[in-house]
Structures are given as structure tokens and as C-alpha cells.
Design a protein around this nucleic acid. Sequence first.
DNA 1: CTGAACTTTCAGAAATTTCTGAAAATTATA
DNA 2: TATAATTTTCAGAAATTTCTGAAAGTTCAG
Lengths: 181, 181
Amino acid sequence: MKVASEIESFVVHFGEMGSRWGFNRTVGQMLALIVLSEQPLNAEQIAEMLGVSRGNVSMGLKELQSWQLIRTQPQPGDRKDYFKPAGSIWELALQVLAERRKREVEPTLSLLRSELMNADNVPEQQYAQQKMQEIHDLIELFSRWFDDVNKMNPESLKTLLKLGSGVGKVLGMKDRLIAKS
Amino acid sequence: MKVASEIESFVVHFGEMGSRWGFNRTVGQMLALIVLSEQPLNAEQIAEMLGVSRGNVSMGLKELQSWQLIRTQPQPGDRKDYFKPAGSIWELALQVLAERRKREVEPTLSLLRSELMNADNVPEQQYAQQKMQEIHDLIELFSRWFDDVNKMNPESLKTLLKLGSGVGKVLGMKDRLIAKS
DNA sequence: CTGAACTTTCAGAAATTTCTGAAAATTATA
DNA sequence: TATAATTTTCAGAAATTTCTGAAAGTTCAG
């Protein structure tokens, strides 16, 4: 791989991690490279730096665009497409979560809803149906929570995350507070 | 697959999803089956129901145990191992998240820390290093948050999730509240 | 229009992951 | 201790995913 060795190990590692986040090794490495590069990169540069084929890079770029993680930046006097991250690190992370929810969580919720809708009322399936209901409710709770906090501005969100379970202490006071207001 | 058809489609779907959560299709299906089954199941029953080999089930059970998602339950008068979920749906979900953090997030944080530690101070890498620092800080923030809320009891956690960004409104009142207490 | 520059496509090859099933290992019973 | 019941292991087979690179497609300047 033709990048500074300090960066290489991160790019490689990020490739491995990428596969946990819904895209394959090479796509993960491509994203890492684009994020760490101050200048936008073209397909040929990426292929060269990662030592993979031009065709593979083309497919990977398409995938990263479908995730809305990168976008093109026209370079004056050059017909090639140059790519840069579609937002800040923070925005990219939220975008990955949002996209995964759309691609994975929504279909699961739909399936569970329709299963529970058409459920026959036979005793030997009641236990399974109850578990499916619990799973549905849990996923929906997480999903709604994410949807909600995703709308917050990054600074508020950071504050919220830093507070963590400390929020619980504040919550305990909420009723009292509201009564006083 | 030898299970009620209402359950089958969920088990199959859960298998697909499982692969996004760190284990393969069959392991995902095995977990779904064990979770939906009121009675503990033995390896032979699972192999039979999913139509996979006994050896495959043995490996899958080992994996689910290493994730601490299932445990054995001795059945009087039967030498076979019978498996059941290691906790409630809620506990299993948190366990998957906790395990993934241990297996994926921690190594990434370590790598980033050591990269940033040994970073040379050469100008052409400053941008990349700054991005790595941002990624590190973001991951650490999420990680700490999760660690923290993971310690909450399920009921408080549910309340917190339901409140979502509504917490923001309460937070704005926090200083005032504390001043009054 | 023509042709050079660039990108995309996709069939087959390569790499990787998962699965099988028979043999080895383990465990309990008599 | 012998043996029957059960689980684990793992080499090779099968399935799946990813990658290559040449051909087809697109775009645009002249």
C-alpha cells in the first residue's frame, strides 16, 4: 500500500472494521483513505494507493456514495472525479447509523409487525409470539430514540452523551422541577 | 426447516441480520430458535429443526456461549446438554452490544491511541493525525456513554430512551435545579 | 462528428467463509 | 474398567463474497 506507514495501519484496520459496519474490507479502506486525506482523491489515486484494481475502486466509490458518505468535488482543469468525505467525522458516523437503520432495522421491524399481525392464536405459539413482541418493542424503542437524538445538533448531542446515566439523576428531579416551574 | 411457518420466516430473517451483528447466518438462526423456544433445546433438536449438520451446531453453540448469549440447563434424566437464553431479550441485546464493544471498539481505540502516541510531527501528516484524533474522541465518547448507561437498570434505561432528545429540555433546566436544591 | 479521457460493467477467477461428517475426545454409567 | 452416549474437532467440500481486467459505455473538447 502506497501511503505513509503511520496511516497505513489505520487504513488496514479500518478496512477490517468496515466489514462490521456493512461494507467490505476494500470499501472500508477506501473510506479511511478519503477521510484522512486533506485533498480530494480520484479513483486512480485510490487504486494505486490501496493496490487494487480500477474496477474494484469504481464499485467501492459507488457504494460509498449510496451510503452518502462521500461526494465528488470538481477540480478545475481536470475531468476526473475527485472524492471527499460528505461531512465531518461526526456526521459520517451518524450517517452510517442512519443508513444501517434504514437497511437493516426497518425491514426487521416490518417483518415482525406483519408476523404479529397475522399471528394465529394457537397455544403452542404464544410463547414465541410474546418473545417476538418483546423484540419488536425493543427495536422500536432504540429506533425511535436514535431518530430523535439524530435531530439534535452535535453540541447538544455531545453534552447528552457525556452526561450518560447522570441523566438519571436529573430525571429523578424532573417532576419536582416541572412542578416548580 | 422443521418449525411452525410463522416462526420460520423470523428465524430465517434473524439469521440474515445475525451476520450484521458479528455471527454468521446459522448462528443467528440458532439464537432465534433458542430465544423463541419455551423449552430448552439440545443440539440434535437444533440440527434437525434448521436442517444443518451436528458439527455445525456444535460450533455455533460454542460461539453463542462465548458471546454469553445462551447457557445450558440440565434436564433431569437426560445426559444431553439443553440450551436456553442467558437472559431476557433486553439483557441479550445489551450483551451483544457489550461484546461487540469489547471485540471491535476496544482494539480500534487501542490502535488509534498508539498511532497518536507515536505520531511524528511532520507537516504532511498533521491533517490525517487530526482526523484520527477526532475519530478516537468520537469512539471514546460513544463507548463511555454505553458503558455508563449499561449499568442502569432496564426500567430507568427504558425511561431514558423514551425521553430521547426530550432530555435536552430537562438539561437546560439542570443548573437552575441544582442551584435550588 | 471524432476521438481521447475517463467511468462503469460484469463474467469468470481468486479469496474467504461456512458447512459437513467421520474420527477423536470426553463423560457418565454399569 | 469397559462401553455406551454425547460432544468436539477439523480436513476437505461447498457456498458465498470479493476482485480483476478487458470490453462497453459515457462525456466532452475541438
